[in-house]
Each structure stands twice: as structure tokens, then as C-alpha cells.
């Protein structure tokens, strides 16, 4: 649910990073946060919990600046990936305008990726949203592991598992090094802002 505040001429878009546990969603946000200038980023909100799992969510507000008098703000959220936090995950999805699905390339996580994408689809349906109609970008994370002894999935395998239906744009990334993080963010931001403004604003900006 995008919030468009015509009185302050503000557009808020909510982008949610989704994916199985430990696939690197929070790392994506941390990389964005550490690389951006202070005046464009807000305070990164993470809820400290024991261990490196996200229990609630992380939030990073970004400010796109003024375009045609409209102040465009983007809020990046992550969901807790672990299966057991289903309720929180669903809650964070509420009102999402765009989605980044972060896939884990480890061989052993193959099923987890597929389950998580299916979980995303059903959760959205409960809010009356269809995944195929929402802006979606898929990120194949942890590409830095390719070439190491750890067995990883190929891009083709990942495509076949996750992108045969949705045909979304995909990016290879390594959230820890920063590779692909901004490419992903750029693409989903464009799609999302366009989606939100197409829905609500075109007649306002003629």
C-alpha cells in the first residue's frame, strides 16, 4: 500500500527483501546503508536479537529527492527468513509495493529457495496481491562462493527453479562485497516507483 500524501507531495514506496533464512537480506541493506550519503539515507533500524537472525525486520528509509515537486521516499524492509517467523514475515509484507527475492545459491539450500518463493506468493495472496502483478527482481546472492569448494547452484539451475514462471529481471550479487547490490536496488526502485506513480499519479503530473 503506497502512501501518497498529496498535502505534502510525498510518495512513499515500500520495497521488501524476501528470501530464505541466511540468504543475505540484511547484508544487502547494510551495504546500501554504508555506501550512501547521509542526506539520502535515513537511520537504519535493526532490532537487535541474539545471533545474526532477523527476528522482526530491518528498515532502511531512503530519500530519492524532489522530482516534479514530489518528494519520493523509499523504505527498504527485510523479513525474517526463518520458517518459524511466518507471522512477522506476513506482517512486513503488508502494503509492499515492490519485492526483491534474494536466493541462496548453496546446493543445500535449493529447496529452501523454492519454499520461500512459494511462501511469498501465498502470503501476498492473503493480502489480495498477485506476485506476477507486482514489481519483482530476483537476486542470486553469494556469487563470491562460486569457484570455492562449497557446492553452489548455477545461474541456469536457479533460473529454472525460481524464474521460469515470473520471468523477472535477475542480478548476480555478492552482498558482502557490494557487488550487484545497487544494480538490484536500482532496478527494483525504478519498477516500484513507476508502478506506484502509474497507479496513482499520472493524471496529477500532466
Amino acid at each position: 500500500m503506497a502512501l501518497i500524501d498529496l498535502s505534502k507531495k510525498e510518495i512513499h514506496c515500500k520495497i521488501v527483501y524476501y528470501g530464505p533464512g541466511r540468504c543475505g537480506k540484511t547484508t544487502n541493506l547494510l551495504t546500501v546503508h554504508s555506501s550512501m550519503a547521509d542526506n539520502a539515507r535515513g537511520k537504519m533500524l535493526t532490532i537487535e536479537t541474539k545471533g545474526d537472525r532477523t527476528l522482526f525486520f530491518d528498515l532502511l528509509p531512503l530519500n530519492l529527492g524532489k522530482i516534479r515537486g514530489f518528494n519520493i521516499r523509499i523504505q527498504l524492509y527485510t523479513v525474517p527468513g526463518q520458517v518459524m517467523y511466518a507471522a512477522t514475515r506476513k506482517l512486513v509484507l503488508k502494503g509492499a509495493d515492490g519485492l526483491v527475492f534474494v536466493a541462496d545459491p548453496l546446493q543445500v539450500r535449493r529447496e529452501r529457495n523454492i519454499e520461500s518463493l512459494e511462501d511469498l506468493r501465498t502470503n501476498l495472496l492473503e493480502y489480495g496481491l498477485k506476485l506476477e502483478e507486482l514489481p519483482l527482481v530476483i537476486q542470486y546472492n553469494k556469487r563470491d562462493l562460486v569457484g570455492t569448494p562449497i557446492p553452489t547452484l548455477t545461474v541456469e539451475e536457479l533460473d529454472a527453479d525460481l524464474n521460469s514462471v515470473y520471468k523477472a529481471k535477475t542480478f548476480e550479487a555478492s552482498a558482502v562485497t557490494g557487488m550487484g547490490v545497487f544494480e538490484t536496488l536500482r532496478e527494483i526502485s525504478k519498477q516500484t516507483v513507476r508502478y506506484v506513480t502509474n497507479k496513482h499519479l499520472l493524471h496529477e503530473t500532466k
Binding site: 533500524l45 532490532i47 523504505q75 506482517l91
Partner: peptide, 16 residues
């Protein structure tokens, strides 16, 4: 007040 964080946490708090 950091209203953006407050709002996000409050919404989550109520959900929780």
C-alpha cells in the same frame, strides 16, 4: 522523534 522508525516498530509491535 525518529518518527519513521517509531511508526515501523509500532506497526510491528501491534502486529506482534
Amino acid at each position: 522523534i525518529d518518527a519513521i522508525s517509531l511508526a515501523a516498530l509500532a506497526a510491528a509491535n501491534l502486529g506482534a
